[in-house]
Design a protein around this nucleic acid. Structure first.
Lengths: 189, 189
DNA sequence: CCCTTAAAGCAAACTACTGTGCGTTAAAGT
DNA sequence: ACTTTAACGCACAGTAGTTTGCTTTAAGGG
């Protein structure tokens, strides 16, 4: 044994199964009864795992929910690359909405709002990064684009707002409308 | 005693004091430690009230927080009435932002996001009503206006989104920017 | 001012969540 | 394979949240 070695982490086999089962259980329970009803014992029972395993690995419900929210709301998908910023944004917005409008994701999103109370949000931070990349790519092509702030304010914000505070506004086509309106802001800017 | 009389409610004196103290305590605690840390015993202690009084009147923390959120996020203020929809919206947006950006209100807002999981949100419903009234008044004057949907998507949503998910974006002047951009969407529509 | 009783307080029982010691299982490294 | 030990499960102890019966207080009505 070397004197200052870091303890070997166990990432496979049983541990991996436990982690996966717990994360799934959190997602299910949040979707079923809301984030405020999620407790460690409930998650443990659903996952078929011992509560103490959860406490030792995650500490408390908050950290656990935060982790699941970050993982599940932030899948890094390939960015659309049509060669046209308008089409890129349209597809990007449609995908964002389609992804987060599912009830399970929506509940996770609402849960992460509460977690934003203390410092780090980051569960939507990568959206801004994506917008930045889309804009930079368009600029490299010499295209005129909305600013990243405008994309966040007039595209991301309305989508997130509706999902969070006005569910069952089942207007699947509205990302397109938003992109069109964003375009109006940009042109002749 | 009449046979089918409704029991007399007690609205003044001690009961009123208890109700006020409890509501204040909820607001304080949410601002201090986040909605997930608010418990009935904690509220009771802060309010100088017995926990059982809270349980009997409100049932559980969820209902209590929901009530406080509705009351505190929905003060019905007088609507601006300048004779011009642009100026009305500018003032309305500025006031909305100024009101909700305070840390205490922001925490309440985030808390109410979780409560939106089960059915009724309504804590922002009256904002839509206000927007409707502003628009109707402008139409009566023969003015061209953005639609209520556009006001919600491009004015209310960005404001709420920033407060909820991106606090410390201390740009007090941005409601004005939003109104200007909304105007661009509307003109030549 | 007095009577009625809604609503508060108190205290104890009860339930649920959290934390820890200890034996067991199995992942990672040789 | 074998060894080491991280991570799991179990069981029990500790703490925190909830519920309920009873007593006390005082609001509302005559």
């Amino acid at each position: 044994m070397s004197s200052d070695s870091v303890p070997a982490r166990r990432t496979g086999g049983r541990s991996a199964l436990v982690i996966a089962a717990v994360r799934d259980a959190v997602e299910d329970l949040i979707a079923e009864s809301g984030a405020d009803k999620v407790t460690v014992p409930a998650v443990a029972a659903r996952a078929g795992v011992s509560p103490s395993s959860i406490y030792r690995r995650w500490g408390d419900v908050g950290s656990l929910v935060a982790e699941v929210a970050t993982l599940r709301l932030d899948p890094d998908r390939p960015l659309p690359d049509t060669g046209n910023i308008g089409d890129d944004l349209r597809e990007w917005a449609r995908e964002l909405y389609g992804h987060l409008a599912r009830p399970t994701k929506a509940s996770l999103l609402r849960a992460s709002a509460v977690l934003a109370d203390d410092g780090e949000t980051n569960c939507l931070a990568s959206r801004r990064d994506e917008a930045e990349r889309l804009v930079e790519r368009a600029h490299a092509r010499g295209q005129v684009t909305p600013s990243v702030r405008q994309i966040m304010d007039h595209l991301v914000a309305p989508i997130i707002y509706r999902i969070t505070f006005e569910p069952d506004t089942g207007d699947t086509g509205f990302p397109e409308t938003l992109v069109a309106e964003l375009d109006r802001i940009t042109e002749a800017g």
